[in-house]
């Protein structure tokens, strides 16, 4: 159970990726219609999807 503390880059890896996805989603939908909107939905939809995946997965 005991293990060495995680490094800062490890701790912030997932939040940084989700933050980048959010940014891409916000900008893509603003940049155009059609395919840009679809990119917007998928990219901005990733963070909530990840949240629900962790919330609903079998308990640890």
């Amino acid at each position: 159970m005991r293990r060495p503390p995680r490094s800062l880059s490890k701790i912030f890896m997932a939040p940084a990726v989700l933050g980048a996805m959010t940014t891409i989603g916000l900008i893509a939908a603003l940049a155009g219609d059609g395919i840009w909107d679809v990119i917007g939905w998928l990219a901005l939809g990733t963070p909530p999807a990840v949240a629900f995946w962790f919330l609903l997965r079998p308990t640890v």
Binding site: R3, P5, R6, L8, I11, F12, M13, A14, P15, V50, W53, F54, L55, T59, V60
Partner: peptide, 17 residues
């Protein structure tokens, strides 16, 4: 304050027990 809280936990861990 997220960093020190997560030093020993994987991202997304919810300690339900």
């Amino acid at each position: 304050v997220y960093a020190p809280a997560m030093r020993k936990l994987d991202f997304g861990t919810v300690r339900t027990r």
